[in-house]
Amino acid sequence: MVWPAMKTPLALKLILCGLMAAVAGAAVAAVPPAQAYSGRRVSRLSAVQVAYLTSCGGCHGVEGVSAPQAVPTLKALTGSFLCTRQGRQFIVRLPDVALSSLSNRMLTRVMNWVVFDLGAPVAGGHEAHRYTVAEVARLRREPLTQTGLTPYREQVVAHLGARCAVPAGLTVYGAAYAVGVKSSSPKS
């Protein structure tokens, strides 16, 4: 079964492109080896880490890095989005953030963890403060579902670059997409 050839509704395509954006041949060297998690020491995960891992960490990576060209890196980068109001709002209004199944309260905790812990350092300025539950609740009511995400992201990042010193890693993401499903038993 070749799934991507199927006619899919636009909404499904958006979801797939938003989260599952992938390109064959993305920098494999930057991939953290799965063996890194095979040690005997089992890390204990807090509630916010569990929410991050089960809602975001599969694609974005357990430590916020997966395939940088295919999936945006979070580690040491998300803090930069708090340089501008537009950037601060952008990362909550992303469809897979705004429309996630997390409650407002837990989504707020996850965003603060992703920005201030995983994504540190945080850019200075007026917008460099923690998200409140009310703010996240308001922003997620306006998900970016009617916007071409790739050009909009480029615009957001360009504004960040004009205002703050942003890491070069912010411009790595954004390339062609490829999506697939397993071809034969038992996934066919």
């Binding site: 599952m20 992938a22 064959a24």
Partner: peptide, 19 residues
Amino acid sequence: RPQANNHIIWCFGTQSFEY
């Protein structure tokens, strides 16, 4: 809900999509 679907080939970001 593809983020948690196990039927998909999870090879996004590797050089080949061959499962």
